[in-house]
Amino acid sequence: MAFKSDDDKTAYWKENLSILAKLLVVWFVVSFGCGILLVDVLDQIQFFGFKLGFWFAQQGSIYVFVVLIFVYMAKMNALDKKYGVDEE
């Protein structure tokens, strides 16, 4: 990657870490919060015949993680274009 200036490089990595932190918070809330902490509350709701808390613990957090990978990819592609370091 060739940045135009050191300021661009610093701003790029700051935005990259911000995106990463936000996505990790979402993943933590879904996997730990919904799968462990809120499981009793969520188990009162049925989802495809399963208790919602059980579903989050077993499959939901994995699906959310896969979606977050694609969100990260899209966000990073946009960030790369913004700073002119995208692959053409």
Rank of each mutant, 00 (worst) to 15 (best):
D43K: 04
D86H: 09
V25R: 00
F50K: 11
L23M: 08
K22P: 00
F3R: 10
W55E: 00
D86N: 08
Y63A: 08
L17G: 06
E15M: 14
K75G: 01
D6W: 01
L23S: 07
G60K: 10
G35M: 09
V67D: 10
S61I: 00
S61F: 12
K4M: 06
D86M: 02
F32A: 03
G49M: 02
F65S: 15
V26Y: 14
F32W: 15
K4T: 14
L20H: 07
S31R: 10
F47S: 00
G60R: 11
Q46D: 15
V26Q: 02
S18M: 06
G33I: 06
G60C: 07
F28P: 01
D6S: 12
A21Q: 03
F50W: 08
F65E: 11
F32M: 04
G35L: 10
V30Y: 07
S5R: 13
C34I: 02
L23Q: 05
W55A: 03
M76A: 05
I69R: 01
G60W: 02
L79D: 04
L23A: 01
K81T: 03
M76E: 09
Q59T: 08
V64P: 00
G53M: 07
N16A: 09
F54N: 10
L24G: 10
V71Y: 14
D40F: 05
E88Q: 07
F70S: 02
L52G: 08
K4P: 06
W27H: 11
D43P: 03
A78K: 15
G60F: 00
K75T: 03
S31F: 10
Q58M: 15
A74I: 14
G84L: 02
Y63T: 00
Y63R: 01
E87W: 01
A78P: 01
Q59N: 07
Y12L: 14
V67A: 15
D80E: 11
V85N: 04
E15F: 08
K22F: 13
V39I: 15
K82I: 03
K75N: 06
I45Q: 05
Q44A: 15
D40A: 11
S18I: 05
F28N: 04
L68C: 11
G84M: 05
L38Q: 10
F54D: 12
V25E: 01
F50A: 13
L24K: 06
G60H: 02
L79C: 04
F28H: 08
Y63N: 01
F3Q: 10
N77P: 00
M76N: 11
V64F: 08
L68Y: 10
K81A: 04
W27G: 09
F28W: 09
T10L: 15
Q46E: 13
V41F: 13
W13E: 14
I19H: 10
V67R: 06
Y72Q: 12
V39F: 04
K81G: 01
F56S: 03
V71E: 09
G35A: 07
I19L: 06
K14S: 13
E15T: 09
Q59W: 15
